[in-house]
Write a protein that binds this DNA or RNA. Sequence first.
DNA 1: GTACTTGCAAAGAGTTTGCACATTA
DNA 2: TAATGTGCAAACTCTTTGCAAGTAC
Lengths: 130, 130
Amino acid sequence: MNLKKTKTREAILSILSNSKFPLTADEIFEKIKSNGNFTLSTIYRSLFSFEIAGIIKKEVSTDKKSVYSLNTPMDKHVLVCVKCHKKVIISGCPYHEANKKISHETGFQIIDHNTEIYGICPECLKKGEK
Amino acid sequence: MNLKKTKTREAILSILSNSKFPLTADEIFEKIKSNGNFTLSTIYRSLFSFEIAGIIKKEVSTDKKSVYSLNTPMDKHVLVCVKCHKKVIISGCPYHEANKKISHETGFQIIDHNTEIYGICPECLKKGEK
DNA sequence: GTACTTGCAAAGAGTTTGCACATTA
DNA sequence: TAATGTGCAAACTCTTTGCAAGTAC
């Protein structure tokens, strides 16, 4: 299972590492299609290979599309502003302690979790005050 | 926008209120189809009406299906067993304290959040030990 | 040369929609 | 009867797959 370096794959990884937020396959496609002869299915397949290899991670967004991002395990918590849709990544896991408690109470051995937190960012709060 | 009471809708609400866990449209369909002449598209449309009316809520599960449940705002935290796919609802919000801290650190006014926690349930843990 | 990648087109799953008919209030 | 709801089939979106040809190592 050796990943070969190809133009498509380099382009995909470059896009993902330059993006602050997870992207859909189609968004990636839109960004690179002008640079060469790319296909959506190839992008899906590349993303799949990367995922298996542990290089990227795939998540499901609220509109039911798959979104992909480099696998930086700590960036799993996203604050989403309901006004301006800005996303802020929270580093570290704020729920670590709470999860220990859940584990204790339910007997579940907790492996992972995903969280989206909705709120209003400081900028939009200020605007609202005016 | 007046919701009319029909056989389909009563059946759907009955199923949802008797279910401890969110259900997909198809799961609802499977459960009620023997009781009458129901259609998947009608179920989707009824679910949509209920959602607009605020009676139920729709969420996206990790396998990208929409799941529906009665709109009880407190049951937002689900423990999912990665082995047997059982879901356990955690009542109350275990992250309340942590969110206060996030709010303080980021300036966000937090409104809401959704969480899925993945783990292995006690039963599957036992099986694994054997 | 062998294994891995790709493009293309077609298939697949879940969901939505148009239309004519049926039902509720 | 006026407004809503339904069944059916077809359309739609995102994603996956089969196959033959191409490319990296």
